[in-house]
């Protein structure tokens, strides 16, 4: 189990290009659909909490998932899994890094990959939308959050905290 966890997160780390948001499609495919370790909703929970707790989102989500599946050891192995590809790749190319930045093939490959990452993210957004936004209140929170993020480039932390307050007020019994 621990090695399985490490390996799944290693794969996610190896193919995450960009920030924490870029790992969501991979997490869903690997942890929800392939391994059936988590429910879709749980990933949303972990991502939501990981976004407003200290640290890199990707690491937070990995630690969370690992802990849920196999306790503290699980948390450590999942976190090791997510950072190991970075460590191996960065340390092995660090000395000759300019060869990679200036390499036109790499540039073309990354441009292609970025397009795919966007397609993957939008697909995940559609799925999340269908499963998580069901009421008018939720629709309202979605629209207001989006406008605040777009117009004021507010920190995600404040958007999440603000939504939490508004939500608790509106769902008061």
């Amino acid at each position: 189990m621990l090695f399985d966890l490490f390996w799944s997160f290693f794969k996610v780390g190896l193919f995450t290009f960009g920030g924490g948001y870029a790992m969501i499609p991979l997490l869903q495919a690997e942890l929800v659909e392939r391994k059936k370790w988590l429910e879709e909703k749980e990933i949303m929970d972990y991502y939501s909490i990981g976004q407003c707790t200290p640290g890199i989102i990707a690491v937070n989500v990995s630690t969370f998932t690992g802990y849920k599946l196999a306790g503290i050891k699980g948390a450590v192995f999942a976190t090791l899994g997510i950072v190991t590809p970075s460590i191996i790749i960065i340390l092995s190319i660090a000395k000759t890094i300019n060869l990679f930045i200036d390499n036109t093939y790499m540039e073309h490959a990354f441009n292609g990959i970025r397009i795919v990452v966007i397609a993957l993210i939008f697909d995940v957004i559609i799925k999340m939308w269908q499963k998580n936004i069901k009421t008018k209140i939720q629709m309202l929170i979605f629209i207001i959050s989006l406008l605040i993020a777009l117009w004021f480039s507010a920190s995600p932390v404040w958007v999440v905290i603000g939504a939490a307050f508004v939500g608790l007020l509106l769902t008061r019994k």
């Binding site: 995940v124 629209i143 959050s145 603000g162 608790l168």
Partner: peptide, 27 residues
């Protein structure tokens, strides 16, 4: 549950916003 009821839509909006930011640079 009430907390997540409200936070999930906000997080989806944030992911959409991140996707749009990257989209502007790539598409």
């Amino acid at each position: 549950k009430r907390l997540m009821y409200a936070i999930h839509p906000a997080v989806i909006a944030l992911i959409l916003n991140a996707g749009t930011e990257i989209g502007k640079l790539v598409l």
